[in-house]
Design a protein around this nucleic acid. Structure first.
Lengths: 339, 339
DNA sequence: TCTCAAGATACACACGAGTTTACTTTTTAG
DNA sequence: CTAAAAAGTAAACTCGTGTGTATCTTGAGA
């Protein structure tokens, strides 16, 4: 049982191959001419010792640490989990590793990230204050924003990916309209003070924009939000259904909320989708597991992952930033009518 | 708008404070005597420059990189996501960062991890081959195993956490028994060749052990497994219900499977829990969102996170390994009878 | 007065890799 | 056949930090 306490270093390889450390470095980085004979000896030694350049030492020389940091509000979110998985798939062969961090709006947050020496930062958050994002950028860290809200004030070389949230919600509203719905209600978890002030959230914005475009009624009663507890939300939805204001469709922030909506509709003795249509968001596992299975909007995490890596690469290579627009696809199941 | 391209270094701080770099180092590491006056000057300069020691350089000196690597089969798993979140909560103040990696059974896997220079590795996987785990340990990396299977062959200084999987399944079986079930069936996603060969999986083992202890019938028809597709599993469960062999309870590997079981039971015209009881595992969000809400076993991720960190600390500090036994709590909802 | 302990500081090296520069050998051109 | 160019190698420095050891000052004790 080989019991190495330390991983082999370049000097071990050089010794075993009978060449200088420099040669080893040249072979591995492939940036200087080395005679074929020595090259082979080096590669053999590398293979035999299972040598890999220490990424820490390499990072110290400015070659990058090989860590890409993902920041999200809820890192245990299923949508985010699937995205991370896809990225892990693509990133592995490039020698990168994913690091994860839940958002904290604390003055130390940025210096904490700086000290951790990650090569790039990908942010998927509606909660992180823009000033912190701005600081990251000002410090020269490559940043890719997954757009969940507008980040209006941010300036500098940031890449942005519109993952299809806004256009997705708009497509959902349009589909509901096309299948006959005229009184749509948006269900969300959070709400800012006053119903119409949350314009920075892309779902909210998409809903409002499309409603206005279709000239559908948009009032305070077009929104149910602010309930963090499912039980309370359930009752709020029931109350809304039984109120004087008409409803024939719920457009939900995510599939969990849609689930609650389905229960509420059934509890009120209404039929779904005949009386009230429901559409969720994220295509999470619940949506296909419950009965009736929920129609929802699916963002292709594989596609997003691809875009993230391309933009990170570009940022790392040229410092060039870019924007990307992706679309969510509608997944029709049983909580919406057919066209 | 301050546009620093580079983070400040120790020498910047030393210059600003008018002392030598060594003094800065002593103040920050608090390991040598420094006069109060200079200490204050250094701290002021640190604050002013927002200096933080570069964790890469510090890691190169063997002080640890501040990265703890989590390895799992499915890093997008909801259970795992919640665990990661809890750990992030506890770990943040200690200056650590979580890294994530999906299992690959590839010869390079270990050297890949070695090269990434993480301080410790936490493994939550039933798929990772034991030889790779052994290699990690032999290389002197602190390893904490979240026990999902037995890892019988592993030797050396590893810490193990039994998160309550085996004891949890046993408690579930016992509860089913106490509420009158006598013909229990275990539903799993995967199966090895032959029904009785998967003894290394703690759920499987817990189920078998408790069944034997209660002297309940345990035959090939006590298992439904091997269906990766929900549709196929649904039909398999229906077939089992309608077969000659009696069933009055399903003990499922997770809540998703329990969901499918609920649908199957209803589709077969049986009542749940009156005719057939069902219990899931993980207390994932689906379990409380569907109707009827599913009884399940809950592993307290906060508790597990706490244990993980304690064991990592211990490993990092003394190199001492340890075992920890935690329990899952039963969450009674509507798919099981009352006692 | 001399010595020795302890207080206070700084030099210099190490960590493991990348890279600049310089040195030696071989090849090519004139 | 000689000079210059090119190929091949290696020594030496760099990144930012921690720390062993050396230096220097001060004060107390004999």
């Amino acid at each position: 049982m080989t019991n190495h306490t330390h991983a082999p270093t370049r000097s071990d390889v050089a010794a075993k191959a009978g060449v200088s450390e420099t040669i080893v470095s040249y072979v591995l980085n492939n940036n200087r001419y080395v005679s074929e004979e020595k090259r082979q000896r080096v590669l053999a030694a590398v293979a035999e010792l299972h040598y890999r350049p220490n990424s820490i030492a390499r990072a110290l020389k400015g070659k990058g640490s090989g860590h890409i940091l993902f920041i999200a509000d809820h890192i245990d979110n299923e949508y985010f989990g699937r995205l991370v998985r896809q990225i892990d798939k693509l990133i592995y062969d490039k020698g990168f590793l994913i690091s994860l961090l839940a958002v904290r709006n604390h003055p130390d947050f940025v210096s904490r990230i700086l000290a951790s020496q990650v090569d790039a930062v990908v942010i998927s958050s509606s909660a992180l204050e823009e000033k912190y994002v701005q600081q990251l950028i000002d410090f020269g860290i490559p940043v890719v924003l997954l757009m969940t809200r507008d980040y209006a004030s941010i300036t500098g070389p940031v890449s942005r990916i519109y993952t299809g949230i806004e256009s997705g919600i708009m497509a959902a509203v349009r589909y509901m309209y096309e299948t006959g719905c005229r009184h749509l209600v948006h269900i969300d978890r959070i709400s800012s003070s006053g119903h119409f002030s949350n314009r920075r959230d892309l779902r909210y914005r998409g809903f409002c924009n499309q409603m206005e475009a279709l000239q559908l009624p948009l009032t305070a009663s077009s929104f149910i939000s602010g309930y963090s507890d499912n039980e309370q939300l359930f009752h709020a939805i029931c109350a809304r259904i039984q109120s004087d204001e008409p409803v024939d469709g719920f457009v939900c922030r995510n599939d969990q909320l849609a689930c609650v909506a389905v229960s509420a509709v059934q509890a009120c003795g209404k039929r779904c989708p005949e009386d009230i249509s429901i559409i969720g968001f994220d295509n999470s596992s619940v949506s296909s597991l419950i009965y009736p299975p929920i129609s929802t909007m699916d963002q292709d995490q594989g596609q997003i992952a691809q875009a993230v890596l391309e933009l990170v690469d570009m940022l790392l290579k040229n410092g060039e930033s870019q924007e990307r627009f992706l679309n969510a696809k509608i997944v029709l199941r049983k909580t919406t009518r057919s066209i």
